[in-house]
Design a protein around this nucleic acid. Sequence first.
RNA 1: GGUUCCGUAGCUCAGCUGGAUAGAGCAACUGACUUCUAAUCAGUAGGUCCCAGGUUCGAAUCCUGGCGGAAUCACCA
Length: 615
Amino acid sequence: MVDHLEGIKIRIAEAIKHTFQHDVHHADIVLQQTKKEFMGDYTLVVFPFTRLFRDKSESIAEKIGLYLKSHAELVADYNVVKGFLNLTIEHSFWINRLQLLRTIEHYGQLDAKEGKVLIEFSSPNTNKPLHLGHIRNILLGWSTSKILKSAGYDVMNSQIINDRGIAICKSMLAWQLYGNNDTPQSSDIKGDHFVGKYYIEFESRFKQEYAKWQNSEEGIRTYSKDRKSEQDEASFFKAHKNQYFNNNSQLGAKAKEMLLKWEAEDEEIRKMWMQMNGWVYDGFDQTYDALGVSFDKLYYESETYLLGKDLIAQGLTFDDFYRKDDSSVWVDLTDQGLDEKILLRSDGTSVYMTQDLGTAHKRYEDTGATKMIYVVADEQDYHFKVLFEIMKKLGAPYADGLFHLSYGMVDLPSGRMKSREGTVVDADDLIAEVIGAVRTATQERGELVDLSDDQRQEIYRKIGLSALKYFILKVNPKKRMIFNPEESVDMQGQTGPYIQNAYVRIQSIKRRIEHEAIADISQYQLLDPAEIELVKLLIDYEQQIDQAAKEYDPSGIANYAYELAKKFHKFYHDVRVIKAESTAAQAFRLMLLDMVAIVLSHSMDLLGIEMPERM
RNA sequence: GGUUCCGUAGCUCAGCUGGAUAGAGCAACUGACUUCUAAUCAGUAGGUCCCAGGUUCGAAUCCUGGCGGAAUCACCA
């Protein structure tokens, strides 16, 4: 990664050395973009120097500025406002930079870095289809993975599929009881939706059963016996639901029996389980495909849920791990401001944490990854703090490379998504809707009429997904976000389609220019402000990637891509390319547009967004 | 109650390790298409950066304490 401003910084360090006899390393000098209400390109803030140089800020700025103007060929002019030294850079600098960028083979691909990274995202349960919450997770995971690759890491995408447990047994049971041997094929329903249908079926049958029980003798007796004072009937039965499921429910008993049979590897149950999960995977694959994401390594909970016990056995030889009288195993994390945490139940069975410890270790053994990123919603912040802390106590070699990419929940304008109230936004529906909205909008505009139907569909798909993905990724991950379905299909303003439109406009210009640009670009001297703005952004790109990778935050890239598109649209409005005033100007602009298109496309690719050639 | 996260324009969001008069988009209003695609551009209006202290030449940003919202604090996953 080159620091394009290094030349200027070296001169500033030199100016300081010469004028104030102080050694400042040029890499420590921070230049910021000059605010647009002032004259200049970059600004040096000199306030920090006042004490060091025993001089007034204006005077320091003036002296450095004067030195630069006479000694630094890149600095065309300067002005001082209070403690701010604003530097105007020679136009030749921008031309040089652009030419340099154009020679870089894969601009945006940073130097290879040490260490293998494994990133886990999506990680669904197999009892129902993916929804909007998964979409945020998947987009964040995919984009972060892309960004890390671009920053030079060797990255593997992974997910752990929660394919076992009581939830899938509910779906299986309902299918067994009420399914009439239907299949996704026979009923023409996508596999994951098909299985989800039976999960809902179970829940609704269970609800009926429970309601009936509440009015039975036993139900009434339980209520009057176990209710807390001032607890009304509705809230009592709401709280009692789990207990009912475990102790009284016939459906509950059957589901639990099925789970036990599954654990005992009952042949018939395992067969049904494989069949139903197979349907779900077919469905998931379609959704992943539609979103344009893929995984390198899959883990299944059914294969990992027993892991971790060995690690805990080892842990018992360390401080802070101990066995209680009832033979349950605990770890004491109070020295880290956390609690004591159970790792093995008194009957020797494992808990969620046990499994996660084991899985992390297995992944390290499988892949050698020393950085592992978990893309999981912020409701599990505490869990991961504890997990990572235990790993440290166990002395795992990858313990310092563990990172929880915690993100906020997705709310609807009406509030939280609730499956019980049917407000969950289905992933497949959403994808179909955004593409449909684009189709309608494009047809209204009357564009693309000369293309084949297939070509048009492909463009609708790219635009629709860009609207959806950009809408989600532009928000800082750790913030809870409000997803407004209407705004998510907006195509104007700060949106994916706006950025795509910039790219499309460039392609359109290039299609209209037949000849190769042969003119000497350095003959072009009087750059338009819009052109300078573009070069400034372009030379900043790798810095943006580096930062996004350090912070595991795609929103920075999303905002950058928007800024670049915005500056381009301004350029497009202000400056002619095809009817440029000179051949040198045109050659410069074509080179500039090539770079802008490359960076727009690359940055959007980091977000998992494809560019259409027309729209 | 403990811990963590969030609080910026009517709405959705930027604001990098502290820097100039806090920025975008949407919505509202006004202009610009015989011009390289108007999914665009230019402009108007819109602010107690939750509140109060503190650190600093300088605080939306850092610290402390409040207020409001969310999550979590299971021998659930």
